[in-house]
Design a binder for these strands. Structure first.
Lengths: 210, 210, 210, 210
DNA sequence: GATGAATGAGAATTCATTCAT
DNA sequence: TATGAATGAATTCTCATTCAT
């Protein structure tokens, strides 16, 4: 095959992105190195030139994903002009403007057939994102819209429940069942955070269109 | 090797139990059939005499575990003399008398390095146990101790959060961190179910001993 | 399972018959000992009590089949009252009276999915049946209806061609194609044996019904 | 083991050739992939790098063999300068100059211990070669040397008879027996095609030496 | 930097055969 | 005679990794 030379960072990123996508599609274990390189159109050796093993690229994928999400969340949390509720909406609302790819906190990671990705990414996300959200919750407590004693742990619990329960494939829920669970999730969040009923209704927008 | 003949049920149980243990120790994928039979000391053929494939024994393991848990929970839920709170305590309380093995709803499934076992067992447990708990919640609503609109979905959310967050290995929490999370879990449950504060304190007993 | 004791010859015959049927259905290689004993409802040990190995029962099956066919053919060949053509018709004609099972020289062995059975039985049949047919051919030469120099070899060639070409599955012919080949077979036999055209038309009866 | 890199076509051909030989020697079923790779001295992975399964290489072997034979036969049949008898001699005559390997229509496929190879190759050969030979027969009919009504079916019958009967190992004939059968084959072919006696004598050359 | 042929340690599964009961 | 649990060698196939070019 034609030998196409690329800048190292570009090639590396290409491999990580492709692996990311395939891992999410089929799961880490079911993705062979063969699949990844065939998809890109490079040789086996090229893969191993950039990554010393398969676990190695899993780590790279997780790092990439995590970095994006955490950075985005932190920037929202740090925004000085926004109220706690506005920040919550920005992070948890369904109306994510301009996110073409995978920068959606709410929607991320909700994919079936995952194992190592879930373990590493999903959990790490909860762990890394929770402090940021907790920080917002504390701001909300100060603003009088929330009432919680242990923001971090509470957020972690809520995050975990939401993450795993409404995870696309894990429980095999139908669309209707998923919607019911998302509604309840909203209610529980409000109660757990001591927020006003329906204050988190942005999580379940009344959609006009399909 | 010496041929040791056993009663079929005994041999079958032996294989299931061993597989169960090894799956939990190393994870389903990393456990080869070879490992299982070597552990027991039987031939490969013996394994395949009892189970037609590797997925087949996974199912057997899950069934066994699930059966025990669900049966126990249902018997508690059906107890006519108990109040809803008493039933909750019986199922979620830490003081499980005489459970040497895996009959503990609260403690089970919290093990690291699992994939298929967690996916199948953990999730199935949530799905099968939730209706039973929801039934108790409804009794509690009738008794005036709970106040929820959607018991089933609420229970599912709470169950999922508790299950996955405090799952022994998944998040890598320390004992202290786990304790903090279990306390918050209690609070959230109380709020979500509309129960009195500290009414679920049996979930976090002040232990004297280890 | 209930232990059913039978007379040794009966049990043996039962196993041979079942093996025979299954070998023809699925082929020798694809028939496991397991299949045979399950079909009969006896234990593995019973099988190995009567036959010392799998090849052993193949031999038994072939012997049985061959014996039946050869015996029948010989009795026809030895019939003093019949002409050569009448004997030919009796053996090769499609109108086999009273043969419910596998005593049909023309139709036997024409089954797909066979290997060892074809090799052993099919070929042995050609070898053992040919002398008998050759004997009839010689009678026919004496009667002036045939004209051949080497009856045995000629018969073997014709038998082989007929056997393998019109073998139900081997060539994957359609019904129409098979019919065309059987017609040609008849013509070639007549020419090779120096018989009158259409004297072997009994091989291709004009059937009214299906 | 030492890693010896070869051109893909070369390696592929090496595997096909080796498999071909071993399949003919021991039969497809009795040849394990292990045997093939040990014979060549490559790793298992190498085999599966070139062929995705065991049936896959059987197909490759059959294709190779078939391709050679059919191509050769077609080129003879298409030769404009040759008479039908000359073409027949070229294809069926024993005097094949310069065929060291398996390019001999008459000699091929006559090997013991085969199953799948015979079924696939032998039969396919009859099927693919018959139209070509039939074409020659028709030419001969036009030239007045043959007299047949159904060339294709007749050829198929004759081909099948010749193929299977004189198949080296199948019937276990001695050399003398084989010779007798080949002589008769010649006679039957002449009669069936309506050719002059001894016109196919090239099939049984009077050999001085072995 | 890049290629892709080659490696080989397993993995799951089958099945003829044995043997304690 | 009969049972059926137990055996284990053999087989096909996978895939992460290596290395000559």
């Amino acid at each position: 095959m034609a030998r196409i030379v690329k800048a190292p960072e570009e090639r590396r990123a290409e491999i990580v992105d492709t692996a990311d996508r395939l891992f999410r599609q089929h799961g880490y274990a079911k993705c062979s190195v063969e699949m990844i390189i065939r998809e890109i159109g490079v040789a086996k050796g090229t893969f191993y030139y950039y990554f010393k093993s398969k676990p190695d690229i899993l780590e790279a994928v997780v790092d990439k994903t995590l970095g994006q999400v955490v950075e985005m969340a932190q920037s929202v949390a740090d925004a000085p002009a926004l109220s706690a509720m506005q920040k919550m909406e920005a992070l948890l609302g369904g109306s994510h403007i301009g996110n073409d790819d995978s920068l959606d906190v709410a929607e991320m990671l909700h994919l079936p057939e995952n194992r190592e990705l879930h373990e590493l990414t999903n959990i790490q996300t909860v762990l890394q994102l929770s402090p940021i959200l907790a920080q917002i919750v504390e701001q909300g407590v100060g603003e009088g819209v929330f009432d919680v004693e242990k923001p971090l742990e509470t957020i972690q619990f809520l995050f975990t429940g939401a993450q795993f329960l409404t995870d696309g494939g894990m429980f095999g829920f139908s669309d209707a069942e998923l919607r019911a669970r998302r509604l309840v999730t909203q209610t529980i969040i409000e109660k757990a955070l001591g927020a006003k009923p329906e204050s988190f209704s942005f999580m379940n927008p009344v959609r006009a269109v399909k």
